[in-house]
Each structure stands twice: as structure tokens, then as C-alpha cells.
Design a protein around this nucleic acid. Structure first.
Length: 802
DNA sequence: AGCACGCCGACT
DNA sequence: GTCGGCGTGCTC
């Protein structure tokens, strides 16, 4: 028997199956989707078995046998193997990367060079000291200067150096005692000496638990005995001890959140649930776009659909943008479905992620709530896939494999015959257009579940404020409203869109901001470290006292960071209790939940934060939302700038007045007349959609055209410009007449890490040859450009082109 | 001659 | 990606 194996080597020439002999002993147990350790060149690597055959095209003498079978139960299902193949074609990634992204990182291999001692007498004294009595030692334990002598010893055959493969995170195990039957225990009891009080006590306790299986640790705790005592009885046969796999218990940090019980649905909600349920009942693949204004109760729809799916004995996946940012929604699912729910998000340790994954694999849970990669949850009988906030850009992975969770969800739903639900108050234009065309089924929730009115939204023109001499970041009106809420004991959320607007250091004499030495971008001032940082390459330097350009002492901080806003808040409202939520204050594990809980418990008057507070926040006492600078995003040179701005403003506004008290929203902007700002006021999605669609059509952008972005980078500006030019000329000759190629142009940030960046954009409606043409382009890249130090990357359907 | 370094191709 | 093989060129 011959196995086809995809090896854990991410490179072009080996991006295909390799044939291996299956040793006799493995023949009956090896399965597709199992991990194996195989010889590859002169080392050992991990691989995935993707298929079997009887004959190989490779001469038999070149075939080598599989070294070791790592999984008796395959880690990947047949569906996953097919999915990887599909992803490879769709995103032009390596198959191994597609396979790896489906698994928790704990199952990925960690390679380590290990020396095996063959002839101990020939090893020098220093190395021998490190080795001691062991016969296999990790190479990294030796100091660097010993490496030449170890190499020599290896050549002489005194030691051998091999690559060992270790699982990254150990499977957590626990010792359990299988207590013997009463007769056996009685026998053992007889033989215990009078002086052995402890043993006597323990065996008496065991008599009361004869035949049971109990964790050793618990037994020791309950009886107040030590391991020595337990061991003594083990030897006498009173119990047997084994190890079982146990799960780590991640801190779920349940918020005090309603949602335990199903609630009465509005007519619209009930209709949505019944139409989705029908598709689920009939095992029909159908994609629904659930368009519901903020506060319209989309989550309740999801939960009732899931209940239906569970009743059919099937499973469900719920994707949320970045779950650690929205602990509220997880809490609701946990409350409703209890132990049937697994949670997967970036806040968990590798071990915890593995444990959650195992629960799914073993069929112990039926619902997964998680971020992007949870779309690969290894369910075998999927009944529904839900993407909440489907417009969120975090569903697209930014590095290889550049997949979109929405596409994977729909693909899996096709394979399982089940509905997909895309939910949003502000759907992406792509999805809404598909719903219009009838590709997706549109379900609309137009009223808020608790019948609250939408918050009143006021747009504040900051240019007027400037004219009137107000140079503060708070307009007179917003400051007044904050004061009012402080007086009434109600809560305020202040939102600062930091993107492109963070604090930088500016010289007032020459007008330049301090630049990163490696990238064409201004450095950002970080208060916590009192240093300047580059967000692209990580470069860090102390804050200069004089301008590095002109030597002037007139340098000052410019821009608005959350820390600066906090200081100003403190100055304006010394009595206000302010919680700040941004990357700096939420870095610690569980910090999100903690801050949100504090705010929910009324421990603060004002919550000040960035993007991360735009979603999911739902507290009754919030009656004021302030957006400090609505239009910073509009300045991005990206075709989605208006869409993102509209989405963000609508989401943020939706945080106010979700319960009994009415809400009010202030949006501060320098571009009050922009349609994205103007229309977010009434959550007027359809009018916004109409205008934005017209613009997209005019400029040939999605959803009217598909786009593919190709990026080039090189240390030398001329080289990258020339190569990009060559690539575009080559593409132009191969692609159809309706296809438009924009560029090459220098990227928005033209230099990162001392590499110059160029890009070109391909716009097309129908281009069946594209995948093939791009594959050929990659071949040209590999055979010549790559060797000159050029890097090229291709992103099919990028979520951003800036 | 002896070895450091960089490039190239193979990996079943 | 990572390794060894092999060529070049430098030093003793």
C-alpha cells in the first residue's frame, strides 16, 4: 500500500503529494487525514495523508516508508481534505498552509535537533558534562562554540544528529484511580500493618467507593493522604492507576447577561426563524442575508435557529468578528446552550484552543462560537453556519491562506446541505447586491426588538467649532451632553477612530513629523513606554527633544490618541470616572471582560475606546454616544472607505438607548456633507447602498467587478518598479479585453522595513483564465524575480487595497 | 591545499 | 523550508 502525503514544507516545488510506502503494521489502522512522520530529504517532517494507491509512478527504489503514524483517529475529515484542495485553488495558497489553518496550533509540529549518543567514550569532557547520563539531548542545550566539535563527532559516527518532531502543546492528562472491588479491598485491608495509619484510613475510604474511578488528586485531597500512601496501596492491588485526557478550563468570565431563555419573537424575527428552519429541515443549502438594524434581535434569531438544528441532531457554527472583543454574545450562547457550546478565540492559550477543538472532534459539543478560524470546526453533520456582523473585514485572513470565512462557510454549507446566515445591520455591498440579485435570500428586521426608537443622531461640524475658536477635541454640544449625563448618573461611550489619526510628533518649524527610518510612515507616540513606535516594522526610538530634521526645539505631539482624550476628559470633567479601552489597556488576558463588566456594573461614567467598542456593547444605562472624529477613515485611499465609515458610524450609534432610556448620538466630523456620514444618521442603509453602488459601478469596483491585488516589494526602488511594470505588461497580454489592470503604482506606504512596495490591481467581470494566468505568473516569479530578492504576493478579492 | 561563503537543486 | 553539494575565491 502506498500513501500520498502532503509534507509540512511550505514551498513551491514541494506543494504536491509525495508517495510513501505504508509499513505492514500500519496498513489496517492508517486513514486519510491522519498525521504521519516521514523522511524528507535528510530530515524528518510531519505530513498529512491525503490518499492511498496501490501503484506509484515513482520508481520503487526511491520510495521510503512512513516513519510513524501520529494519529489513530485522523485529525482531518475527508471534507477538510477536499476543502483544502478548494482553498488552494481559490486563494492560490500552498496546500499545506490550507491544511494547517484548519487545525489548532497545538497539532502543528515543532522541530528540534536532537543528538543521540552512540559512543559515549569519544565525547569531550565539556559536552559529556552537559549530556550526563542521558542518551538523547536537544542540540540547543549546547553552547555555540561546541557545535564544530559536535559536527565532527557526528561525521565520525560517535553521535547522530536527527530532527525530532514534538507536538507543540502537550495533551493535558490526569491520573485516575480505578478502585478495586470490595472483596479485593477487604483482602488488602487484612494485610496492612497496624502502624500504617494512613494506609488504613485510605483503604477505609476506598471501601466506601469500591469499583469507582476517581481522579487521584481528588482522592488525596478528600482523604488528606499523600502520593506515597496511594502508591503503597497501588502496589498492594487496592486500585489501578491510569491517565486520562482532561480539558483545561478556560475562564469564560460570564457577564451578567440575559439570554438564558428564549424570548418572544417579533413577527419579522419569527418569519426569519421559520424560513431558515425550513431550509435546515429540508437539508437545503441556502444563504440568507439577515439585515437587521442595530438592536433588532439578530442574536435571538440565531439562537432559535440553532435550537432547531440541535433538535435534528445536527451541529452549528457561529462566527463572530473577534470574539474576545464581544464577550457579551458568547455569554448569551453559553447561557442558552450551556455545556453544548465550545468557544474558540484568540484569547485562549494554545492548550485551551486544542481542548475546545477536541470537544468538537469527539462530538461532545454541538455548537461552536468563535472567530474566523472556527469556520473549520470539525463537525461531521453541520446544520447551520452563522456569520454575525458579516461585513467585518476580520473575516478575511490577511496572510496566506488568504481565505474569507464567508466563502468557506458557504462552501461547507454546500457540502453538508445546510443554510448559511449572514447577519448585519450594515451588510457588505457584495452581500447586499447578491441578495438583490436573488443569490442570497434577504430577510429584513426593520424594527427594534424592544420597540425602542432609534437614537437621535446629531452631526457636529467641527469646522464651525474651529471658526468659533474651540480648539478642543470636544465640541461645545458634546461637552454639554456629557455634563448632562454625568449629572443624571447615566453612561456615555466615546469612540475614537484612531486609524490614520494616532499621535505623532510634529515639528512646528519645518512641519515634518518624525518618520520611521525603515518605512515611509510617521512614528506613533506611545505614552506607556514614552517612546515612538512604527506600526509597520516595529521600530522603536525615544522621543526626540529637538527636531531631527531642522534641529528646532519647537516639536510637539499632534493628533489624538485615547490617552490624550482621557487627559482632556479629566481636565474638563475632573469628577468623571473614565474607563479606557484600547490595545494598551486590553493586552492582558481577560481584560476586555473585566473592563466591560466594570462599565456594566456602573463603576464608570464614561467608556472611551477605539474600534473594539463599536460592536456588541449592550448596556441599559448608556444614553449618550460620542464619535470624536467620524471622517478619519474617509481619508484612506481605499474603495471601501465610505462603506467602512458608514458601517462604523451606524454600529457605534447603535450602542445608545438599546433599552428603556432613550439614546442620543453626537457625531463630530470635518465632512458633515459626506453621504456616508449624513446617511448613518438615520441608519439609512438602502439610500447609502444606492449611492455607493453607483460609485462602485462608475469606478469598476466590487461588487460590479472582481478584483485581485498583486503586491511587489524589493530593497531597490528601480528593481521593484521595473519588475512590476514587466508583470503588468505580461498580464495585459494574457488577460481578456474586458479586464482592466490598474498600475503598477507605488503602494500607499511606499516603503516598509526598507523594502519599496509597488502594486497593481486587476479588475474583471469574467476571467476564467485568471487562476491559470496567475499560476504562470508565479512560475515566472519563481524562476527569475524571486532569485533577485523580489517578493510578490497575490490577494484574490482583497478586503482593502490601501 | 584548506576552508569560508553563496548559489542551486532535490526532497517520494 | 532546509539541507548538502559544488563552485569560487581567499589565506597560509
Amino acid at each position: 500500500m502506498i500513501a500520498e502525503v502532503i509534507t509540512d514544507v511550505s514551498a513551491h516545488p514541494v506543494d504536491r503529494p509525495f508517495d510513501y510506502l505504508v509499513p505492514q503494521r500500519m496498513e489496517t489502522v492508517i486513514e486519510r487525514g491522519a498525521r504521519v512522520k516521514v523522511p524528507f530529504g535528510n530530515r524528518k517532517v510531519l505530513g498529512f495523508v491525503t490518499g492511498f494507491k496501490e501503484q506509484s509512478d515513482i520508481p520503487v527504489n526511491k520510495l521510503r516508508p512512513i516513519d510513524e503514524l501520529l494519529d489513530l483517529e485522523p485529525v482531518l475529515t475527508g471534507e477538510m481534505l477536499d476543502l483544502a484542495d478548494w482553498m488552494k485553488r481559490e486563494t492560490l495558497c500552498f496546500e499545506i498552509d490550507a491544511l494547517q489553518v484548519m487545525l489548532p496550533s497545538a497539532l502543528r509540529a515543532k522541530y528540534e535537533k536532537v543528538i543521540h549518543v552512540l559512543e559515549p567514550d569519544r565525547i569531550g569532557s565539556e559536552a559529556a558534562g552537559i549530556i550526563g547520563s542521558r542518551n538523547a539531548v536537544a542540540l540547543k542545550e549546547f553552547p555555540e562554540r561546541l557545535l564544530p566539535s559536535l559536527k565532527r563527532l557526528s561525521q565520525e559516527g560517535a553521535i547522530s544528529i536527527e530532527t525530532g518532531i514534538r507536538q507543540r502543546t502537550s495533551i493535558k492528562k490526569e491520573r485516575v484511580l480505578h478502585i478495586a472491588g470490595p472483596e479485593n479491598l477487604a483482602d488488602v485491608r487484612e494485610g496492612i500493618k497496624k502502624s500504617a495509619h494512613r494506609q488504613a484510613a485510605l483503604i477505609d475510604w476506598m471501601l466506601a467507593h469500591a469499583g469507582e474511578t476517581i481522579p487521584t488528586r481528588d482522592v488525596m485531597e478528600l482523604t488528606g493522604t499523600t502520593r506515597a500512601t496511594v502508591k503503597a496501596l497501588l502496589e498492594k492491588g487496592a486500585a489501578a492507576e491510569t491517565e486520562v485526557e482532561v480539558y483545561r478550563k478556560p475562564e469564560v468570565g460570564l457577564l451578567d447577561e440575559a439570554g438564558g431563555d428564549p424570548v418572544m419573537l417579533t413577527d419579522e424575527q419569527a418569519d426569519a426563524v421559520s424560513r431558515i428552519s425550513r431550509a435546515a429541515d429540508e437539508g437545503r443549502e441556502e444563504t440568507f442575508l439577515l439585515h437587521g438594524i442595530t438592536g433588532s434581535g439578530k442574536t435571538e434569531v440565531y439562537m432559535q435557529v440553532i435550537r432547531r438544528v440541535l433538535e435534528q441532531g445536527k451541529e452549528a457554527i457561529v462566527l463572530v468578528p473577534e470574539i474576545s472583543l464581544t464577550p457579551q454574545i458568547t455569554s448569551r450562547f453559553k447561557k442558552r446552550f450551556g455545556p453544548l457550546v465550545a468557544v474558540m478565540h484568540s484569547g485562549l492559550s494554545a492548550g485551551e484552543k486544542y481542548d475546545e477543538w477536541r470537544k468538537v472532534q469527539r462530538g461532545e459539543v454541538k455548537v461552536v462560537v468563535g472567530a474566523r478560524s472556527a469556520v473549520f470546526a470539525p463537525f461531521r453533520n453541520l446544520g447551520a453556519v452563522i456569520l454575525d456582523e458579516e461585513h467585518e473585514s476580520s473575516y478575511k485572513q490577511e496572510d496566506s491562506p488568504r481565505y474569507h470565512a464567508r466563502d468557506v462557510a458557504i462552501r461547507r454549507a454546500e457540502m453538508h446541505g445546510c443554510p448559511v446566515i449572514l447577519g448585519s445591520a450594515t451588510p457588505s455591498l457584495e452581500s447586499f447586491a447578491r441578495a438583490h440579485k436573488g443569490v442570497y435570500t434577504l430577510l429584513t428586521l426593520s424594527e427594534r426588538a424592544k420597540q425602542q426608537p432609534l437614537p437621535e443622531v446629531r452631526i457636529v461640524d467641527m469646522r464651525e467649532e474651529l471658526k468659533n475658536g474651540n480648539r478642543s477635541m470636544f465640541s461645545v454640544d458634546l461637552a454639554e451632553a456629557i455634563r448632562d449625563r454625568l449629572g443624571k448618573g447615566e453612561q456615555t461611550v466615546l469612540f475614537l477612530n484612531r486609524r490614520g489619526y494616532s499621535s505623532f510628533v510634529l515639528c512646528r518649524d519645518c512641519g515634518t513629523a518624525v518618520q520611521c527610518p525603515n518605512c515611509d510612515i510617521s512614528l506613533t507616540y506611545h505614552r506607556a513606554s514614552e517612546r515612538l513606535q512604527c506600526h509597520y516594522c516595529g521600530h522603536e526610538e525615544p522621543v526626540p527633544l529637538i527636531c531631527p530634521e531642522c534641529g528646532s526645539e519647537h516639536i510637539r505631539f499632534f493628533g489624538t490618541g485615547t490617552q490624550k482624550v482621557q487627559e482632556e476628559l479629566h481636565r474638563l470633567f475632573p469628577e468623571a470616572r473614565v474607563l479606557r479601552m484600547d490595545v494598551d489597556t486590553t493586552r492582558q488576558k481577560g481584560a476586555h471582560e473585566k473592563l466591560l463588566r466594570q462599565f456594566g456594573d456602573g463603576e464608570a461614567d464614561i467608556l472611551l475606546g477605539t474600534q473594539m467598542i463599536a460592536k456588541g456593547l449592550d448596556f441599559p444605562n448608556i444614553t449618550l454616544v460620542g464619535v470624536l472624529s467620524a471622517d478619519t477613515m474617509l481619508r484612506l485611499s481605499d474603495f471601501r472607505a465610505a462603506e467602512k465609515t458608514f458601517q462604523l458610524l451606524t454600529q457605534v450609534s447603535g450602542r445608545a438607548g438599546r433599552h428603556e432610556k432613550e439614546g442620543q448620538v453626537y457625531i463630530q466630523t470635518y465632512a458633515p456633507e459626506h453621504y456616508a456620514v449624513e446617511l448613518s444618521k438615520e441608519q439609512a442603509f438602502e439610500p447609502f447602498y444606492a449611492i455607493e453602488m453607483a460609485n462602485r459601478k462608475r469606478f469598476s469596483y466590487p461588487p460590479f467587478y472582481y478584483i485581485t491585488l498583486i503586491r511587489f516589494s524589493h530593497e531597490d526602488l528601480m528593481t521593484v518598479a521595473d519588475t512590476a511594470e514587466k508583470a503588468v505588461a505580461w498580464l495585459a497580454g494574457k488577460l481578456g479585453g474586458d479586464t482592466v489592470i490598474i498600475g503598477p503604482t507605488a503602494s500607499e506606504v511606499a516603503r516598509v522595513n526598507n523594502r519599496y512596495r509597488y502594486q497593481c490591481l486587476i479588475k474583471y467581470k469574467k476571467e476564467p483564465k485568471l487562476a491559470g494566468v496567475l499560476t504562470d505568473l508565479v512560475k515566472i516569479y519563481r524562476s527569475s524575480w524571486m532569485k533577485e530578492g523580489l517578493l510578490m504576493s497575490i490577494d484574490m478579492n482583497p478586503s482593502s487595497i490601501s
